[in-house]
Amino acid sequence: MFVEVVAPAPGSPPPRAARPPLGRRVVAGAQPYLYLAPALALLGVWTYRPLAQTVQLSFYSWNLLPSTPMTPVGLRNYQRLIDLPDLGQAAVRTVVVIVGLLPFSVVIPVLVGLVTRQVRDRARVVYQAMVFAPTLVAPVASAAVWQWLLDPGAGVVNKVLGTRLNWLHETGSAQFAIIVITGWSVLGFATLVVSAGLAGINGDYGEAAQLDGASRGQITRWITLPLLSPTLVFLVLMTVLLSAQWTFPLIDTLTQGGPARATTNVYYLLWDYSFHSYDAGLGAAAGVLLFAAFGLVAAGLVRLSERLSFHDD
């Protein structure tokens, strides 16, 4: 059955609202920016201004004392950084730490997340709380406990392994210990992120594939992991950009960058220059170089994630 509808008369323009006065239009246009202004101002004050000051400071020699003048030294701080082997060695160690942490922040969490998908209800909550617990322990407190565990004489680790190794004071094992302890503390956080990522995947895909005869391994390989890729890229990004910061409190408490600088990564070096040796200019120059390097790495990773990630749109 059809109902006849009167067609609009051709030629008559659609009704239009009257143009508001210019003043009000400016106010209306500015409104979103006004809402944003406080956030932008704080961002500028807390992030971009210090950044600009760091760049400025990197061309001076200054020991952070208000009574001491800042002496302009041009590019000498950068020259010193390049001449000294410290920065290059620290950068290599930073890469070692990042690579060493990837299993803890990506591989193990994914395995654990996949295996424990079947855990349900209250057991799930309890299990997640237990996995997350190490992340909640203050790093300095856990460092103190690990120091006892790793003690060469009375430490539990040596007793269990039957070794007599002074873990934190041998060049070989110190870095390894720092990586494992850091990994232990970030594992819970990463596992939680992976669980959240898995929970966000629509179960329909898996069920459909199962109906078509796909095995569980095939579902994991061809459906779950691709859908999880944004989460994985996020974790890799976090590890690359933050691992040097995650390790910092542990290094500061356990090894102070030693033995023989074996655990001095770029962040610790930067801190050491600025706040231990009071060479603020050198520290700032190292900071600027780092900022540039990590900026490039981050940009690369973000682009990679755009291309690699499979979005469930």
Partner: peptide, 12 residues
């Protein structure tokens, strides 16, 4: 935020 965290002076 704006008053603190300045750098030092370059004059002796």
């Amino acid at each position: 935020a704006t008053s603190g965290c300045g750098l030092g002076s370059t004059e002796a």
